[in-house]
Design a binder for these strands. Structure first.
Lengths: 197, 197
DNA sequence: TGTACATCAGTGAACGCGCGTTCACTGATGTAC
DNA sequence: TGTACATCAGTGAACGCGCGTTCACTGATGTAC
């Protein structure tokens, strides 16, 4: 039956939210429209009243998820901006273990290339925002690689570190933690962070 | 009909090989047993005469693919071992564009966590071999992060760089190349490689 | 403000489709004599 | 070496299942008068 416009908007948000969480956790192809709709408290038919396809919902969920995640991370920069604060958040065991609430960039990087150009464009847009944020907190100490290059490599390194830490976790949890610590330290150094041993 | 033992062994190899290539290109869940069998010149029934399940074939394909890929990369170390040679190979546009022939670690990192512990163990085993190889070519210049840590971070960085380079390629090919170059340079520096500007 | 009706968000059964897996069968291979 | 037969790798039809999507329908909402 028909619902109020406000209710319909809430339902739409619930779908985007559920899709975001489930996709980050299981991948676009690892979750079905039935599960997404159910988590949003609706049937799958409602999904198609709001979105033309699962792919379209996935794209919107990606962008919305990034916006939320980015806002959360950006808050860390109240006061003194510092690369270390970003890295502590992005490479924590919490970030590794709660991918459903994490950054879509990290969760979906390897999946994007298997989808269409729209998905790639959404990913790129978000990635560049993240790069700009990192670039802004780098000090220009390294004469060899400029800030832009270091920012590109730091984000790529962070994404890879989380992927690998998750991959080895089931069989070697200790190694998984070790990878996070190592990448945290090395990427900090790349960003000009002074050693602390 | 029954075939010779030699022929059966060849067919098994063909299945492992086809599975390896297709899985690296499309992911475990992105390719079906029909396609794998067809590429091996067989029907899907033959696959089940050789393997108990698709998952079992995928696990064997992962290990076999890594062995082959690792042997190829290790050959680069004839003569003077150097991190740069590894990085040039692993972060080339060729490696990005020919994932079907590349390293299973790079291709499957993010998928592994969604499969069972067996898959995780296979991944870890291969990852640690790669880490040992990188660790062996690092010189001990960085006082802050030890060789083990730097090796862990370099491999994670390489895996992330390829994932991101592929993700942005469809919409921003120039950025994709830029990421490879930046990660090549930064990870080289991490490994103690002297600047070359 | 009250009434009549068009709109449309949401429901749930049904669709075709491709998936991984099973199984009765085939027929050349490998073995026992 | 030749014959009889058990073995089993490979075939291809069939299985149940879950997928994304469609569609006839419902009934409260929003609007026109």
């Amino acid at each position: 039956m028909r619902v109020t416009k406000e209710r319909a908007a809430e339902n739409r948000k619930a779908l985007v939210d559920a899709a975001g969480h489930l996709i980050r956790e299981k991948g676009v192809d690892g979750v079905g429209v039935a599960e997404i709709s159910a988590q949003a408290g609706l049937t799958h038919g409602a999904l198609y009243a709001q979105f033309p396809s699962k792919e379209a919902l996935a794209a919107e969920a990606f962008t919305a998820g990034f916006r939320k995640s980015f806002a959360r991370v950006a808050k860390l920069q109240r006061g003194r901006p510092a690369l270390g604060k970003y890295l502590d958040a992005l490479l924590s065991t919490f970030a590794r273990d709660n991918m459903a609430d994490g950054c879509p960039l990290t969760a979906s990087a390897s999946e994007v290339s298997r989808h269409d150009e729209t998905m790639s464009a959404r990913f790129t847009e978000s990635y560049l925002q993240m790069v700009a944020a990192i670039e802004a907190v780098l000090d220009d100490t390294d004469a060899d690689a400029d800030n832009r290059q270091r920012a590109l490599a730091i984000i790529a390194g962070e994404i890879g570190a989380i992927a690998v830490a998750r991959a080895v976790q089931k069989s070697h949890p200790g190694l998984s933690d070790e990878i996070l610590v190592a990448s945290r330290k090395v990427l900090g150094n790349v960003g000009g962070e002074p050693g602390r041993r």
